Amino acid sequence: MGLRSGGQRFLLALFGIGLFASALTSAQTEQAHIAVKVQGTKLEEPSDYFTTLLIMALNASKAENEVIDIVFSERDYAQARWINMLQHDKSNFVIWTMTDKEREKQLRPIRVPLFKGLFGYRVLLIRKQDQVRFDKVKTLNDLGKYIGGQGTQWPDTPILQSNGLRMTTAETTELLFRMLNAKRFDYFPRGISEAWFELLQRDEPDLAVEENLLLYYPAAIYFFVNKENEALAQRIEKGMEILIDNGQFDQFFYNHPRFSSGMEKLKNRRIIYLQNPSLPPETPVNNPRYWIDLKRE
């Protein structure tokens, strides 16, 4: 009886080990869903440059059993609100914005420029009827006779002002488009990844990209996370480096409408150079791995 009981216990033990091993194997292969919040809204989901690139980077650096779930914002906010939200949110939350010294103190930057440094090249959105007026602009002093429009909390605004340009400000891009149409200011500087792309998306029959001028100041747009979420920062950074190494970043960048819609229209423009006193010294402006310099092209 004792021997049979011992044998039964032994068989039960083996059976238990088998169940444990089976459960462990199942747990190892079970998909782990990782939620990542972004500043993009659901309306931007199909073609948003930044969200798509972020997903590519996170997928490049994830484990085999991980699934990245992007959580879109229910509404859009002014840039200052996004930054404030991220400062107080230690979860997996990512925003994208132009860098400056103050933002790199507040947030954790992933220092891979998302537009290869081209974010510092600016064309001017104007009212179509004003092209004749802007044909006379040859220098920074000439441009200073007109009034531009910029976001209240955008880092571009103090850059432009520090170079002697007069700016009228508003909280959102939508409001700035309305103000330009209403003749509240004369021009709206936009990145070459933004200007033509935005005009294609919007019904703005009275606006156009000014034909002759190109502003330039060194600037980069990065992904940012909360300063205490180093794990997420490193995963995004690793993913971006993988995409650069395997060529997927260049393929995505050069073929995306935000880039292709603008680059072909930059030839023979007069470049007006500006200083950027807010540029962090760590910005990789001299590293061709991350930075395109149109002035040398």
Rank of each mutant, 00 (worst) to 15 (best):
K62V: 12
A21E: 01
Q39S: 14
A219H: 01
Q161K: 15
I34V: 15
A170V: 01
G120Y: 03
I95L: 06
E171Q: 10
L140T: 14
A13W: 13
A78N: 04
D135N: 15
G6M: 10
E104M: 15
G262S: 08
I70R: 07
V94E: 06
P280N: 04
G40W: 01
E241V: 12
E241C: 07
P284V: 11
G191K: 05
E102D: 08
P257D: 11
R75P: 02
A13P: 00
N276L: 10
E104H: 08
W96L: 07
I68S: 11
L232V: 05
F188A: 08
L175E: 15
R75M: 06
I70W: 04
A80P: 00
K90T: 14
P158A: 13
P46V: 13
L274V: 09
A182E: 15
P277A: 05
I147M: 11
V132S: 05
T99I: 11
K101H: 04
T25D: 08
R133S: 14
Q129D: 06
W154H: 11
F253L: 02
V112M: 03
R184S: 15
L175Q: 15
L266W: 07
H33E: 08
Q129G: 01
F249R: 08
W154L: 08
P109T: 05
H33W: 09
F15R: 06
N229V: 02
Q201M: 11
A195W: 10
E30M: 13
H256C: 06
E297K: 14
L124C: 09
G191I: 14
Q79K: 04
K128V: 03
E237V: 02
M167G: 11
R75G: 06
L279W: 05
W82I: 00
V137R: 02
Q201K: 14
W154Q: 09
I272D: 03
E204M: 08
A60Q: 12
F119L: 12
G6Q: 10
V71N: 06
I192L: 10
Y290V: 10
W82E: 09
F197Q: 13
R9A: 10
T51G: 06
R75H: 08
E264S: 13
L54F: 07
N59E: 15
R166C: 00
K145S: 10
G144K: 08
G164H: 10
G2V: 14
F253T: 02
F249W: 06
L243P: 04
Y77I: 00
S193E: 04
D245F: 00
R9D: 02
K183D: 15
I147N: 03
D186Q: 12
L107T: 10
F50V: 03
V137K: 01
E241Q: 13
S261T: 11
Y222T: 01
M167I: 13
R178H: 08
Q79P: 01
K138P: 09
E211S: 00
K265E: 14
L266A: 11
F115K: 13
L176D: 08
F177D: 06
K183C: 05
V67S: 03
R258N: 15
G191R: 05
Y187G: 10
M56Y: 13
W96M: 08
A195L: 12
Q153P: 00
A23T: 14
P257Y: 04
Q248M: 11
V36I: 14
F20M: 12
E74I: 02
L214K: 01
F188E: 05
E174R: 13
E297S: 12
Q31K: 14
G2I: 14
E174G: 15
G164W: 09
N287R: 00
L43M: 09
Y222G: 00
I147L: 11
R4G: 03
